[in-house]
């Protein structure tokens, strides 16, 4: 197996007194697409927020590469390390134009952004047409594209996406997963939270199943897709199917 880029170990996260994540461990290798699947409230978003430094873990470690500890770093320092998050529910800045939303994705960079704009527009031609539109007036699908494009503008080593397919039409969902393949081809590691287990496991090299704060199953995308329990619980398919 290739080099590990992210290692999460014994991670506990609590909101007030309630534990949302109860001692999970997993790792992500360079260039992989890894997915966290699981039902509502399993703690998937909480895990990604902890990696980004938006919530502070109670205990456990999050390490980037060989030995760069991320626990205790502020979110801006983690972004500077090359980790960007496409948050749940898109969260584009509605009062900024499409172009400004992309520009602000590159907030920590001081070099020329022309290439990056070109790259993002090549992935999402719609965004180029809507350059000057306020992001708040975009459709849900367009906002999702913008949120992904914005995260790419920082030239991340790891891009984390929290349910990018949520609330999108099937055709747009397919687009988004196509883009994930595209991003991986460019050497970016992808950590993906998904409810849409079917699509997610198809693109993922490996998957982790989360249930109420714990990881209950791991395997390659194909293995998990073929697993009876997964098929029942997350793919809505009966045993005889």
């Amino acid at each position: 197996m290739s080099k590990k880029i992210l290692t999460v170990k014994d991670l506990y996260i609590a909101y007030g007194g309630i534990e949302a994540v109860k001692g999970i461990s997993f790792d992500v290798c360079e260039g992989e697409v890894v997915t966290l699947i699981g039902s509502n409230g399993a703690g998937k978003s909480t895990t990604l927020k902890a990696i980004s430094g938006l919530v502070k873990p109670k205990s456990g470690s999050i390490v980037m590469g060989e030995d760069k500890s991320l626990t205790g770093l502020s979110t801006d320092a983690i972004v500077a390390q090359g980790i960007s998050l496409v948050p749940e529910g898109r969260r584009v800045f509605p009062n900024l134009t499409v172009k400004e939303n992309l520009k602000i994705g590159a907030y920590l960079r001081h070099d020329n952004l022309d290439e990056d704009f070109k790259y993002v527009y090549s992935l999402f031609p719609r965004l180029e047409e809507r350059n000057w539109q306020l992001a708040g007036t975009l459709s849900g699908g367009e906002q999702q594209m913008l949120a992904v494009g914005r995260a790419l503008m920082s030239r991340p080593k790891i891009i984390m996406m929290d349910e990018p397919s949520l609330g999108l039409a099937p055709l747009v969902v397919k687009d988004i997963f196509g883009i994930i393949e595209e991003i991986r081809k460019n050497g970016v590691t992808v950590l993906l939270n998904e409810q849409n287990a079917n699509m997610a496991l198809k693109v993922a090299d490996r998957g982790f199943v989360m249930e109420t704060g714990s990881i209950t199953m791991t395997g390659t995308g194909a293995e998990l897709l073929a697993n009876e329990k997964i098929r029942e619980a997350y793919l809505g398919k009966s045993k005889t199917n």
């Binding site: 801006d76 948050p87 009062n95």
Partner: peptide, 16 residues
């Protein structure tokens, strides 16, 4: 302008 609508997402951009 970004921070005025959403602190956490602004943080995710690397904004302090």
């Amino acid at each position: 302008r970004a921070s005025s609508v959403d602190f956490n997402t602004a943080r995710l951009m690397g904004i302090r």
